[in-house]
Design a protein around this nucleic acid. Structure first.
Length: 287
DNA sequence: CCCACGACCTGTGGGC
DNA sequence: TGCCCACAGGTCGTGG
C-alpha cells in the first residue's frame, strides 16, 4: 500500500501523539516481521523519548533520545492505528476498546500519555530496526537511496543523467529507489500518464524536453496525494482511522478499460505486466 | 545492463 | 455456495 504519500500521511498522523512523548510500554507480539526484530528491541525502546518522527523515502524514522533511530518500513500491508484510552483504572493503567484485528497486531507502543499505537501487517513485508543514528546514512537501506522526489535535488538534469543510455522504460527506472526514493507502482503510473510519456519507451530515448514535464508531474501527483491524505485501497487508512481520498483521482491505476482522463484524450486505459508489475497506461496519449 | 522469474506472506476478489 | 487462481501498495536475489 504505502508509497511516499501514504507514508507521509502516516507520519503526519503519528507525529502529534509520538513526538515529545516517552514510550512507556512496548510490546513485540512476535519475534520478527519481514526480518527478525533486534533482540533488545523492547528493552531499548521502553522509556525512550521520540524526539521527532521523520520520513525518508518510504521509511519512517523515529528519532530517539538514544543512540539509535527506530526505522520502520510498512512493506505492502503495514499500517498503524492510534487508540486513545477510554479510561484510567489507576495512574498509568489505561484500558482501550477491543482490538478489531488482533491477529495482525504485531507491535504495540504505548506512550506516557496513554495513547496506544499499534502496528498491523498481515503480509509481514514490513520491517523495523534500530540503527545507529550517527551512521544511519551509511546503512545499506539508506546509502544508495536517490533524492527525495519533492526536493530540489530531483530535477530534469538528475533524470537525464539517470535515463541516459538506459533501455528500460521510465516506469521501471522510476521504481528504482536508487534513482528517486519514494515512488511506487501507483504514482509512477499516474505521473507517466500526466506527462504523457510511455512507460515502455527506452528511457534513454525519452526526449530531454519531456523531462521537466515528467518531474513536474511526479511532484504534482505526490503533492496532491499527500494533500488528499494518501490513497485508500484495501486496508490503508490514516493512523487516526480516517480514509485517504486520492484513489478517486487516479487516472490510470486499477482503471483498465476505462477512459483516459487526460484533457482531450479519447483513449482507454490498458494494463500490461512490466518487470513483473502491473503497468496502467493510455496507449493513445502516452508516447 | 537487461529481463524473466521467484521469494518473502497472507488475504481478497473474481470467475466458474 | 464454494473452490481455485490471480493478484496486491515493496524489496531482494538468482540465473541466463
Amino acid at each position: 500500500m504505502p508509497e511516499l504519500p501514504e507514508v507521509e500521511t502516516v507520519r503526519g498522523g503519528l507525529a502529534p501523539v509520538l513526538e515529545g512523548r516517552r514510550l512507556a510500554r512496548v510490546e513485540a507480539r512476535r519475534p520478527d516481521l519481514r526480518f527478525p526484530l533486534p533482540p533488545d528491541f523492547v528493552q531499548i525502546l521502553t522509556g525512550a523519548e521520540v524526539e521527532r518522527l521523520e520520513r525518508r523515502a518510504k521509511y519512517l524514522l523515529a528519532r530517539l533520545d538514544r543512540e539509535d533511530t527506530l526505522v520502520m518500513h510498512l512493506g505492502m500491508s503495514g499500517r498503524f492505528e492510534i487508540a486513545r484510552p477510554e479510561g484510567e483504572e489507576r495512574p498509568g493503567h489505561f484500558h482501550y476498546a477491543p482490538d478489531p484485528d488482533p491477529k495482525h497486531a504485531h507491535i504495540v507502543f504505548e506512550t506516557d500519555a496513554g495513547v496506544r499505537v499499534t502496528y498491523y501487517d498481515p503480509r509481514r513485508f514490513g520491517y523495523m530496526a534500530l540503527i545507529n543514528t550517527a551512521t544511519l546514512d551509511l546503512h545499506p537501506w539508506f546509502a544508495g537511496l536517490g533524492p527525495e522526489p519533492l526536493s530540489d535535488a530531483f530535477d530534469a538534469a538528475h533524470l537525464a543523467a539517470a535515463f541516459a543510455g538506459r533501455k528500460q522504460g521510465p516506469k521501471t527506472l522510476l521504481l528504482d529507489q536508487r534513482i528517486v526514493a519514494g515512488l511506487g507502482n501507483i504514482y509512477v503510473c499516474e505521473a507517466l500518464n500526466r506527462a504523457r510519456i510511455s512507460p515502455f519507451k527506452p528511457a534513454g530515448r525519452v526526449a530531454a524536453s519531456r523531462l521537466p514535464g515528467l518531474v513536474e508531474a511526479i511532484k504534482d501527483v505526490l503533492r496532491e496525494a499527500i494533500a488528499a491524505g494518501g490513497s485508500t485501497l484495501r486496508d490503508f487508512a490514516q493512523a487516526d482511522g480516517a480514509l485517504g481520498y486520492f484513489q478517486h483521482r487516479f487516472r490510470t491505476y486499477d482503471r483498465e478499460g476505462q477512459p483516459c482522463r487526460n484533457d482531450g484524450c479519447a483513449g482507454v486505459i490498458h494494463r500490461e505486466v512490466q518487470a513483473g508489475r502491473s503497468t496502467f497506461y493510455c496507449p493513445k496519449c502516452q508516447k
